[in-house]
Design a protein around this nucleic acid. Structure first.
Lengths: 340, 340
DNA sequence: TTGTACGCGTTATCAT
DNA sequence: ATGATAACGCGTACAA
């Protein structure tokens, strides 16, 4: 099957290519009759304009790309929907770009910006330890969503929660419930992002309440399992139980891990929360549907997503903005924790 | 910031553009010294080739696109990983393309094929009621994964399970457990795809066992909620309970709905499986971690994903293939159902 | 081994 | 309102 081009359509219609182009792109100065005739032959011959050629020629495009590392993370599910809806609502084109595990999201962004003549970029996930040198190669505005880079004096636009503070809030609550020996399920020891922040919040809460930090109660991810998965939560909890160390509560840095923890406890014949309290983080829908419902930190995902897009457009429109927006998360007390 | 092009790099290096091109694309006939020099200036000036121009010029690209409708569906999560891994393993480029809810996935495919000079296309999700006329506009091989179009004599390459048969298998099992009044949580009444198939399996099982099909036990999705969500399962179950109709078992056409059903039952003071048995479909990881674990139909997602890619490459290589591959799913008996 | 020049399919500028 | 033509940035014959 031969590639049909705009030239051939022009020939078939007995007009010039520019007229066809005008028809395609809804230009005003074209005879409605000619336009209709052209559109009909286009339909008839199934002509589809080549996007590469368009992007090459165009100088701008009203397109906003959302780059996601870890696209199947349930945390992003409804956020993606909101990005899509809000960007379309502004008559912009929404492009969702998946970034592979081994890829550098900034490299992908730089490439995509040129390829698609982007107007703006949203980073979702990943992007933890970037010095920012590379980010300066981006010539369009960008917003980093949900990743709290937290290094002071970041010039970048970010919309996040304060992971340290929220984590501390949770552990505060658990301590207030009377728990003193709180186990922590967390990321790899090398993690310098979310895992580290939530760990820091844990440590701060302990310290403020005069409880000694006990290494033996911290379960680091070290098998190859996906950090935030239920399976990892299960495995870590099992190891914790087998260690013989005593604790009355498990705080997992994600809801999925918390659910895995519950399952491990059930399998060991324990009850939640009667024998052990279990808490998570994120406020995924499943935390409310699990039985017992999981005590968690509900991140305002909708608000974060909406604020991200608003910030994006404000930057595009060069309005004055607050570049560093921090949302407050909500402690949701479920049935998985109890007072001692 | 000026767009830096291959020409400028050539000028900076004092060579012709073709030499720069050769350096970039790892061509053999180039002086290693020249190449290194060029690569250094490229790095120095942060030159990134424009993909649109490349795609425009190239006639082929060793790229395979995976088009997904409903990208945040947890059912696809690990499948995406496998696609990514397998395609990369074959030294092909993997492109994940999200299809918006209101978009026609075939239109997107046609456009993308031209834009990126694709070698092949995988459809994941969506694509229910296509007559196939449009699909014929695709000039590269494509595979439809997990969507059982099931209309006989489809000339398309598909990798699926037999949704009707598997659904029937589940209901068979429930009936064997002694359940006679089995409520069904299903999709919209207008659904002509997965929802319809699983309904059909339900009906067949009832019929074979001489149990009358009772309209009152079928809860159709009709609020605007996402069909396969926990929330929808919750709402439908609640309505079912309030209807006063008697039943001993709930069969939901997805695990998420089943979990929502359990929650609704718990909230109504019922126990699972003592008061009501609950079954799902899909075999998502969460079905095993939920308490009680959900009796479900475990679709072999890994195998389906791997077979999809294998079929894809066989089609590309024009090897003889079995165009219509049907995998068997596994009935996983959890603790959410019991014998009467 | 390297450089020149053309064309990929489209849009935009400038005539008409 | 319409048509010819020059870019857009790159790859690749072809010539050197």
């Amino acid at each position: 099957m031969e590639q049909i081009t705009i030239k051939e359509i022009a020939k078939l219609c007995g007009v010039g290519v520019s007229t066809v182009s005008r028809a395609i792109n809804n230009h005003p100065d074209i005879n409605p009759a000619t336009k209709q005739m052209i559109m009909e032959t286009i339909k008839k011959y199934n002509y589809v304009p080549n996007n590469s050629a368009r992007n090459l020629k165009r100088s701008d495009s009203n397109t906003i790309a959302v780059l996601i590392k870890g696209i199947s993370n349930p945390f992003f599910a409804d956020m993606i929907q909101i990005f899509e809806r809000e960007i379309n609502r502004k008559k912009y084109t929404f492009v969702l770009q998946h970034v592979e595990e081994f890829e550098d999201e900034v490299d992908v962004a730089i490439q995509l910006e040129k390829e698609k003549r982007l107007k703006g970029i949203v980073f979702l996930g990943g992007l933890s330890n970037h010095t920012g040198e590379k980010l300066e190669q981006l010539t369009v505005p960008f917003v980093i969503s949900t990743v709290d880079t937290s290094e002071a004096a970041q010039p970048f636009a970010t919309v996040t929660v304060d992971d340290v503070r929220e984590s501390e809030k949770m552990v505060d609550y658990l301590i207030d419930c009377g728990h003193k020996r709180i186990a922590l399920l967390t990321a790899e020891q090398s993690d310098a992002s979310i895992g580290m922040f939530r760990l820091k919040g844990y440590q701060r809460a302990l310290q403020r309440h005069g409880i000694a930090y006990d290494d033996a109660l911290v379960a680091w991810t070290e098998n190859g399992l996906p950090t935030y998965s239920m399976e990892n939560g299960y495995v870590l909890t099992k190891k914790l139980l087998e260690s013989g160390n005593e604790f009355t509560c498990i705080y997992a840095i994600s809801d999925s891990m918390a659910i895995g923890a519950c399952k491990a406890l059930f399998d060991a014949g324990k009850r939640v929360p009667e024998d052990y309290s279990v808490a998570g983080y994120d406020g995924l829908p499943v935390s409310a549907f699990y039985e017992p419902s999981i005590t968690t930190i509900r991140q305002p995902r909708r608000e974060i997503a909406e604020a991200t897009i608003k910030l994006m457009f404000d930057l595009i429109k060069k309005k004055p903005v607050e570049r560093r927006q921090i949302f407050e998360a909500e402690l949701v007390v479920g049935k998985s924790t109890r007072e001692l």
